[in-house]
């Protein structure tokens, strides 16, 4: 489903984001991307979401070479995935409900379907009661969950999440991981960038390890006994 082939990413300022990255993620897999700060995790996520382009090499999603997509096809590509941003990217002037409804409005859902779906995903992340608050009335962890709800709302076949549990306490982090696992079990492909090694160890899914822009390991922990 996701293929990186000889991918380099060099930012305009000369910083190396990624160096010669190669891997394949199958449809329905759940994969962690980990590494120290600055290792290139966010860069990798952004390349999949086409929020950045590669400097060299190819990123393919469902066989499509992302770098060759026209503007409208790139927009279409972003609509098919659910992106969780490291800094949430919520709209502070709009209600939680409207924030979560945004991708559904973009995708042209009817109001009735939007009402139903937004309530369902807000309940899913435990924020059903906060629908008509605005993001700044919420804690960091709650905002993060709104960001997750927004990514899940359009029922994407691919979820990419940049440090989705960065601001959650361990209990909530585990709950969110359980949520991702249940999505994965239902057929959704899930890519999670995280530096939380404890969490990654608990979940026991495939891990890509980045270091200074290079992919230095790609392993699957032994299943729990």
């Amino acid at each position: 489903m996701i293929e990186f082939e000889g991918v380099h990413k060099r930012y305009a300022g000369g910083q190396n984001g990624l160096l010669d990255i190669n891997f394949v993620i199958q449809r329905g897999e759940m994969v962690f991307v980990t590494g120290h700060s600055g290792a290139g995790k966010s860069t990798l996520i952004k390349l999949i979401a086409l929020l950045e382009g590669t400097s060299r090499g190819q990123v393919r999603v469902d066989g499509q070479v992302l770098g060759s997509l026209r503007r409208s096809a790139a927009q279409q590509h972003r609509r098919t995935l659910g992106m969780v941003f490291q800094d949430y990217r919520l709209l502070h002037r709009q209600s939680i409900f409207d924030n979560v409804a945004l991708p559904l409005r973009i995708a042209g859902w009817t109001q009735a379907d939007i009402d139903k779906r937004v309530r369902a995903v807000l309940d899913l992340v435990g924020l059903g009661a906060r629908a008509f608050d605005t993001p700044l009335m919420l804690s960091g962890g709650e905002q993060q969950r709104v960001g997750i709800a927004r990514a899940l709302a359009p029922r994407p076949a691919l979820i990419i999440a940049d440090e989705p549990t960065g601001n959650l306490d361990p209990k909530l982090a585990t709950d969110i991981m359980q949520l991702f696992i249940s999505l994965m079990q239902a057929g959704t492909t899930v890519v999670v960038a995280s530096h939380d090694l404890h969490l990654i160890q608990r979940v026991k899914k495939r891990v890509l390890v980045l270091d200074k822009g290079r992919l230095i390991d790609d392993f699957r922990p032994e299943p729990a006994a």
């Binding site: 859902w109 009817t110 029922r155 076949a157 999505l183 959704t188």
Partner: peptide
């Protein structure tokens, strides 16, 4: 679960 439907 796992629906691929993007447009309602």
């Amino acid at each position: 679960r796992g629906a691929v439907r993007i447009r309602a």
